[in-house]
Design a protein around this nucleic acid. Sequence first.
RNA 1: GUGAUUGUAGCUCAGUUGGUUAGAGCGCCAGGUUGUGGCCCUGGAGGCCGGGGGUUCGAGUCCCCUCAUUCACCCCA
Length: 430
Amino acid sequence: MSQYQAVKGTKDIFPEEVAQWKYVEGIVHTLASLYGFSEIRTPVFEYTELFQRGIGLTTDIVGKEMFSFQPDTKGRSVTLRPEMTAGVMRAALQYNLFSLAPVHKLYYIGELFRKERPQAGRQRQFSQFGAELLGVSSPAAVAEVITLMMQVFESLGLKELKLRINTLGDTEDRVRYREALQSYFVPFYEILDEASRERLEKNPLRILDSKNPVLQELVAGAPRLYDYLNDSSLRDFEKVLFYLAERNIAYDIDHRLVRGLDYYSHTAFEVTSSVLGAQDAIGGGGRYDGLARELGSSSDVPASGFAVGMERLLITMEKQGLLTTINPLRPLVYVVVQQQELVDHALTIAWRLRKAGIRTEIDLVARSMKSQMREANRIRASYALFIGKTEYTTGSYALKNLLTSEQTTLSLEDVLQVLHQPATKERINL
RNA sequence: GUGAUUGUAGCUCAGUUGGUUAGAGCGCCAGGUUGUGGCCCUGGAGGCCGGGGGUUCGAGUCCCCUCAUUCACCCCA
């Protein structure tokens, strides 16, 4: 075991896996732009207050999961971003995007950091892609982001995902519901676990989220937010459901879906994967009309968005056998040197092939010809090009098709021509 | 932060009630063809058995501590 290993909760992504990441990212870029979203890249760290304000002081993320530090001895505390939305909203407000146009549609792919104990599907550094639809307050907007998210899943071929959806109502609804919940739970104070007792004061909605089996019965009997919604909140939610039905997006209404971030209002949703284990949320999001005000905006900037965990997405794809067909690019031709004194000539040939746009590999550690051929086979090159005395003097090179074992002697120009034929470009995997 | 789990070769793992120079498969390197891969055969390199301390004549095996891993809780992607 080497002395140094990657920091707890982080991992290295090696070339084979990078090919898978690029594939998924490609789909995200394509579909996001199909839906009219443009990419934004914000800094990986922000002033700590941004997250405290934006995500909420009562959340676990802000309470105990942030990587915070001070870049300068007397400087302000900064924090590695634990989520994306606050940073995107900050950027939009800072540059006053809404003076240019009332609506902005932004998407992102980026790394996030949360100081949690790692486990299956959870790391301290992880990646999300997501989209934010800023400046519209409507069921159509939420439906828009949900639809985009679901189309990404569909395009990737994911199966057995479950979309759960709920409404949290507007601020007034929640104030009334909050009171109702508190008066329901207070008589059972003795039964509640420590975490729930704390939430009773700060954020009673979160008690509904508890997985504590002891509380299940109690939670099941709690009043439903749904019964406290005013007419316009109800109509809003029903409209969202209508859009989903219209687009053949299956969903389950889950009245207990609350989600951990304080800024949600009205629609909240979450997608889970049945193959993931304990951390089964693959994506989620909702509407957060109050966030901009929370960040000091003088005008309302209603918004909707979603975020999807890249690692969990890839784990799900892996388990569903959706990654086996994605392979990194293999070299097309392997230049084999037959006498060591011809190495320099071979390097020149390799360079010429590469200049001509042909993926070329060549041995750099003076290995035997047998080894070079084994290497060519190992990395699945399609062709071997032999550089020997005969070739050097005649200018004709032996080109061997490694799949069919056919070998022909050609001038370098003819070699280039053969290698440029599209039909010969990819070797079929054996 | 809490609980449990596992640390032996690059990888996956053996290693008997503590007993000589710690093994296998795969991978890697070389050779079997002095100019030709895959399959096969032969050989080789590579381990302070996670680290520290203790018990013992003797520890990979037992005890303690520590570090790390994994899974779960909490919560989330």
